[in-house]
């Protein structure tokens, strides 16, 4: 096998593994937009909050971030419900300039609070999985990334199952389609939106737990993650959960290919080109519905 082919396969496989996690935090972002038309620019900071929360659990108990998923998930769920009820509720259905500015303000508040608590230094954990590699012929994969990918696939599968098969999921889809008509059939939009936003934040928390296994965190991490969630959501189709996951995988594969065959420093450049191309020519993305608002 030539070295180019090996590099190509390695880049594709690594992209797939990293993309699972991108997909995981992108579906949270997409859920908030799809159901409530909230463009939550603080979503990257919520992922970062999840990373810091997992880091804190690790510091206090020595537990691996994967074991911190339940507690961090619950913590971010509560934070999400609170954020929704206190701030975002008044902007439901209106992706207005005020809503965007409020989200940016929230992201800054989260950044500042975390910087005050943890300082500006980059922090990471010594995960058992993060430091070990699966080696197969010329290919190598971090166990941390494999575990993160598995968690991401499970979360997306469970969410998709909930949305498609359960009463709660059908209610969320109904509210996403038409909140006023949903109330007319007896659905309490406020409660459903609160749950949906809390779930979106819970997914951010879980993404934070798996990300910190192999990706150290500092107060600027959220800002670095946010564009990926945005681009993945646009590529996949605004409001589409499966689309956001697919978009996350595409983003990561594009990054890995660019990094391998061009330059690691330029790995994000094609993503922004993709963003522009999709917004200009395919505004509904790969799996978005044309009825999406």
């Amino acid at each position: 096998m030539s070295s180019t082919v090996v590099s190509l396969i390695q880049a594709l496989a690594s992209g797939l593994l990293v993309g699972g996690v991108y997909g995981l935090f992108s579906i949270g972002f997409s859920l908030a937009f799809g159901v409530m038309r909230i463009v939550n620019f603080a979503h990257g900071e919520l992922v970062m909050l999840g990373m810091y929360a997992a880091y804190s659990v690790y510091l206090l108990t020595g537990a691996d971030p994967l074991l911190a998923i339940p507690i961090v998930g619950i913590f971010l769920t509560v934070v999400g419900a609170g954020l929704y009820l206190v701030v975002y509720e008044r902007f439901v259905g209106k992706a207005t300039l005020q809503q965007l500015l409020v989200a940016i303000a929230i992201s800054m508040v989260i950044q500042i609070i975390l910087q005050m608590i943890y300082g500006p230094e980059t922090r990471g954990v010594q995960s058992v999985l993060g430091s070990q590699y699966l080696i197969y012929g010329p290919f190598f994969f971090s166990y941390g990334q494999i575990a993160a990918f598995i968690v991401a696939v499970i979360c997306v599968g469970v969410l998709e199952l909930l949305l498609q098969k359960t009463r709660w999921g059908k209610l969320i889809r109904a509210v996403a389609d038409d909140p006023e008509a949903a109330e007319i059939v007896g659905a309490n939009s406020r409660a459903i939106n609160t749950v949906a936003f809390a779930v979106s934040c819970c997914l951010a928390g879980i993404a934070g737990c798996v990300l910190i296994i192999y990706y150290p965190v500092n107060p600027g991490t959220g800002m670095a993650l946010m564009p990926i969630a945005l681009i993945a959501t646009v590529i996949g189709g605004l409001g589409s959960i499966k689309g956001a996951f697919l978009g996350g995988i595409i983003c990561a594969i594009v990054q890995q290919l660019t990094s391998t065959f061009w330059s690691p420093a330029l790995q994000d450049v094609p993503l922004y080109v993709l963003l522009l191309v999709f917004l200009a020519f395919f505004p509904f993305g790969l799996l978005g519905r044309k009825t999406a608002h």
């Binding site: 109904a174 389609d177 006023e180 109330e183």
Partner: peptide, 23 residues
Amino acid sequence: SPDRRRRAGMSRTFQKVRLFESL
């Protein structure tokens, strides 16, 4: 709220049909 009025037994249709397109 509308949802409580609905559960009390009052329902309506809309001038322009508004179904849940994803269901």
